[in-house]
Design a protein around this nucleic acid. Sequence first.
RNA 1: GGGCGGUUGGCGGAGCAGCUAACGCACCACACUGUAAAUGUGGCGACCUCUGGUCUUCGGGGGUGCAAGUCCCUCACCGCCCA
Length: 297
Amino acid sequence: MSIAQKIIVILGQTASGKSGLAVKLAKKFNGEIISADSRQVYKGMDIGTGKISKREKQGILHHLLDVASPKRRFTVAEYKKMALAAINKIFKKNKIPILCGGTGFYIQAVVDGIAIPEVKPDLLLRSGLNSLNTEALFEKIKKLDPRRANTIDRYNRRRLIRAIEIAKKIGVVPVLQKNPLPYPVLMIGIKKSPEELKKLIKKRLLKRLKQGMIAEVKKLRQSGVSWKQLEEFGLEYRWLARYLQSKLTRTVLVSLLQKDIEHFAKRQMTWFKRDNRIYWVKNYKEAKSLAQKFINK
RNA sequence: GGGCGGUUGGCGGAGCAGCUAACGCACCACACUGUAAAUGUGGCGACCUCUGGUCUUCGGGGGUGCAAGUCCCUCACCGCCCA
């Protein structure tokens, strides 16, 4: 017999313990996990992203890990497609998909079904636009699409360039469309106090260094990933790239990276805070009871 | 004891007579339409009837000037050099 199709989402700040919680829930409720992490999709980026090990998976199937080369650019649009495919696949096995990760935008793209304009990045156009100053970019989108110009952040070059890219291709940037998943979704967030989270981040950072995170970044470099790309990946990859280029000492590396991760965690929270569908829990027990009720409903 | 340099917001640090004391860090808040661990924005002396207004501030005190972190005197403290 087939069970009702429902989805559980596990989210939270970096280092809050999402992966472990998701595995426990998956074991308990016969689930499979879909990673919602914009960096764990890349092959060869394991230690720095905190990718779950085979042992830690405890036999639970994980989707959307290692699905892209770090030499090319992965995007939300691809993520969304792949995640939806994974969800269907899991449903066919009569199992429950558990979307787990800290990339709020990716989670939202899937859960709310944000319609991302079907315009692929045009690198040539982008590099051309990049030579314009920010004001000029804003004027350009204002002329092409006044509606979008009205809502866009006029100081954010990256957004301006993308908006122009879309407008040039299909006329205007479409009004934001949402096609939410047609299944009940339970969103569980892991709540940690700022002090506790800082400690967890610190501990994990030192552990990663010990595990050979520096060598991992060196290896990525050797395989052809540019400094610029590493910089763009952010956090451990960004700071380690700077370290490997002798731009800072090891001590400075650790303190600045720690701070940067803390800042990132705050930004994640800013994103999650505004979503009032999220149930915030302290531990597995609370999560389990929520999930139990959700599934029985 | 003598000489020189310094003392600016939580920290670093500009300004050296004239509009709102730059900037960076930290901190707080926020945004997010194919880079989202990315990218961007605002606030950060106090108070209020808070899309604006009032007052205060550059180690202390005094002075000169229409106007003083900015010049002068003096005291305190810190640093370096000479005794």
